[in-house]
Design a protein around this nucleic acid. Structure first.
Lengths: 168, 168
DNA sequence: TCAAACTTTCAATTATTTCTGAAAGTTAAA
DNA sequence: TTTAACTTTCAGAAATAATTGAAAGTTTGA
C-alpha cells in the first residue's frame, strides 16, 4: 500500500473509533494526523490534509491541548504556531485515562455516593433493589478507579508484565 | 432523599455517562431503570417511567438484548413481554468489555495490521514516522486486547485482588 | 504606531443522531 | 378462522452535535 492511502485509512479509522467512544470525530482525526506526521504541522496544514475549516481546526487543536495530547512548537523565524503530538502510546493511554477519569468518572462517583442513603423502610422491595444496585455499582466503580490510579503510576513494561503474568 | 428522586437522578446520571461513552442516552437510561427495579418491567412501564415513545422503548430494549445486558421474562397468564437486567456488576462489566471489543476494537486491529507494510524507502522520514506509530499502536492495542481477554476469564475477587495487590 | 500575520470567536448553517407514532406485522386464545 | 393483544418497523420530525467562515481580537516586526 502507498503511504498516502495508508495515512487516509489510518486517519479515517481513528476518527471512527473516536466517535464510537464519544470523542469528536475531527478531534480524533487531527490527533491521528499529528501522530503519524514526522514533523510539526500548522493550522493551515491540518485544514488542507483533513479538509476542514479554520475554525474547526483551531477548536480541535485547542481541545487536544486541553487534553495535553499535543503541544505547541515554535519554529524560529516563523510566526505561525506548529503542533506536535506526544508519540509514546503508553503516555497517551495514561493521559486519556486520567482525563476521562477526571471529567467523567469522578462526577459519577460523587452522585452514586450521594444516592446510597434513601429515606424509607429498608425492608421495602423497591428500596432494597435500589440501594443494593447503587451500592454494588459504587463499590465497583471505586475499585475500577483505584485500578486506573495504579496503572497511572506504573511503568508500561512493569504493568503489562504483571498483567500478562496473571494469565499463566 | 426520597426513592423517586433518587431513581430519577440515577437514571439521568447513567444516561449522561452513557452518551459520553458513545452509548445512546435512552439505551443507557432503560438499562439504568431495569438495574434498579426490583421486578421485571414491560414496554409500557418503560414508556411511562422514561417518557419515551413505544418505538423508542422497543428499539432500545432490543438493542440491550443484543448486548445481552437484559433478558425477556415471561409472566404466566400474561401475553406481554417483561424485561429484567442482569444485576451482577462484574458480569455486566465483562459483557460490555466483550461486546465493545468485538464490535469496535477487533475491526481497528485488523486495519492497523493491514497498515504495517508500506511501499517505498524504509529510510524516508515520513514512512518511518508512519510505520513506527502504527506499529507501536498495533502492539499496544494487542496487549490491551489480551489484558481484556484475561479479565474476561477471571473471577471478580481474584481479578481485583491481583490488581490491588500490585499496588503494594 | 501601524499593518500584516496570525489566532480566536460565534451566529448561522449543515450534518448526524435520535425519536415519534401510526401502520403493518405477529401471535395466541376463543 | 377471527380478533384483540401485543411487537416491530420506518418515514418524517425533532433534537443534538459539529462545522463554517467572516469578523473581531491579538501579536509582532518594521
Amino acid at each position: 500500500m502507498k503511504l498516502d492511502e495508508a495515512k487516509k485509512q489510518f486517519i479515517q479509522t481513528w476518527g471512527t473509533l473516536g466517535s464510537e467512544w464519544g470523542i469528536n470525530r475531527t478531534m480524533a482525526q487531527v490527533h491521528a494526523l499529528l501522530l503519524i506526521s514526522s514533523g510539526a504541522l500548522c493550522t493551515e496544514d491540518i485544514m488542507q490534509e483533513l479538509n476542514v475549516s479554520r475554525g474547526n481546526a483551531n477548536m480541535n487543536l485547542r481541545e487536544l491541548m486541553n487534553w495535553t495530547l499535543i503541544n505547541k512548537e515554535l519554529v524560529p523565524g516563523d510566526r505561525k504556531e506548529y503542533f506536535v503530538a506526544e508519540k509514546d502510546i503508553w503516555i497517551i493511554a495514561k493521559t486519556i485515562a486520567r482525563e476521562r477519569k477526571r471529567r467523567e468518572i469522578k462526577p459519577v462517583l460523587k452522585v452514586l455516593n450521594s444516592l446510597k442513603e434513601i429515606e424509607g423502610d429498608k425492608k421495602d422491595k423497591e428500596i432494597k433493589a435500589f440501594t443494593e444496585t447503587v451500592g454494588n455499582l459504587s463499590n465497583f466503580v471505586d475499585k475500577m478507579d483505584k485500578s486506573v490510579d495504579m496503572m497511572l503510576k506504573a511503568d508500561e513494561n512493569w504493568f503489562f508484565g504483571a498483567i500478562l503474568k496473571m494469565i499463566r
